[in-house]
Amino acid sequence: MNPFNFDIEQLNQKALDIRRDIITLLVESQSGHSGGPLSCADMAAALYFNILNHNPGNPDDPVRDLNFFSIGHVSPLIYSVLAEAGYFPLRDLLTFRKLNSHLEGHPNCLHTPGIEVSAGSLGQGLSIACGAAYGIKMDGSERSVFCFMGDGEQQEGSIWEAVMFAAHYRLDNLCALIDYNHRQIDGETEKVMNIAPLAEKYWSFGWNVYEIDGHNMGEILGALKACSEFTGKPSVIIGHTVMGKGVSFMEGLAEWHGKPPAPDQGEKALAELGTTFREWSERLRNG
């Protein structure tokens, strides 16, 4: 059971709060990634606040579902989701990337509750998810495994080793989510190294594929629920998204992949998200 079970309206509100957290913590740290965290926010909100069977009060709960963020660089999103879910205080978000904070630039599972495995080198998460899904099946347990990946990340060869493995062993307790924002560090994914047609690739490797609007909460929930019911094959949800979603001057621009907003840009971004730095950092400090 998901401990929140939010409806679509509540999930949209949570995704908005997560975007506010992301901008606020990035303004505070003046270091970190903006684009990917904002494009993943809706899918991550749906997973943690409606689908995932997890227990923020007991992160090691042996019956929990597992979600692996293969894209460690979206740490602002990951930490916001975990703090909003109650794994640690919201105020910790203001310590992101600072010395002695448990919130490292890329997540460290030995420091931060709710992180299943450390990440930061792309192309590794899906294999880890495969191992967990296989082990769970060996035990005859009902736990589900999820894995968040990027679209640029699909260029890593190791992912396709894992894609083969998951289909070969019919890991239908595994659901991958791809943030297809069509952008990566060096520009448009289509121009850097085209991964299209992505759905066809997964399909031909033996996966069950859903292609959705990764910002439409109804579609996201529908696909996640369909995945959990599907048997015989692993599933992938390819969510078409916009890098920097929610902040007009970031949207669709690869240059926002890896930099934080300057304080004045942050203020502008937060205004678009219906708050101010002062108001939102106050909320975090008290949370």
């Binding site: 590794q124 191992g131 967990a132």
Partner: peptide
């Protein structure tokens, strides 16, 4: 039942092992 053939995919094998360890194997 406790033997897993991974094929010629060593990088995947290392991390499949990692995932197995995360569920208590």
């Amino acid at each position: 039942q406790r033997f897993i053939e991974v094929g010629i995919a060593e990088q995947n094998m290392a991390n499949v092992a990692a995932g197995l360890s995360l569920v208590g194997k």
